[in-house]
Amino acid sequence: MTLKDLRPGQEGTVLSVAAVGPMKRRIMDMGITPGVGIKVIKVAPLGDPIEINVRGYELSLRKEEAQQIQIE
């Protein structure tokens, strides 16, 4: 399952980040590393991007980026 599959209000734990290169670096720099808990807050009015809460702050990312993040 990936972060993209979570609905607003649902929570999950990060297993791995599948992205490569600068995007992977960015995702991890922002605190999305294996083992961290993530909660999906909402989806933008036009359906994309999404807003999540991670490590106590709010982060937005596109669905294509969320798809690279494996969770359970």
Binding site: G21, P22, M23, M30, Y57, E58, L59, S60
Partner: peptide, 11 residues
């Protein structure tokens, strides 16, 4: 340039 949309939504 790499472009993505990983952005903080500050309080």
């Amino acid at each position: 340039d790499a472009s993505s949309f990983i952005m903080e939504l500050p309080q």
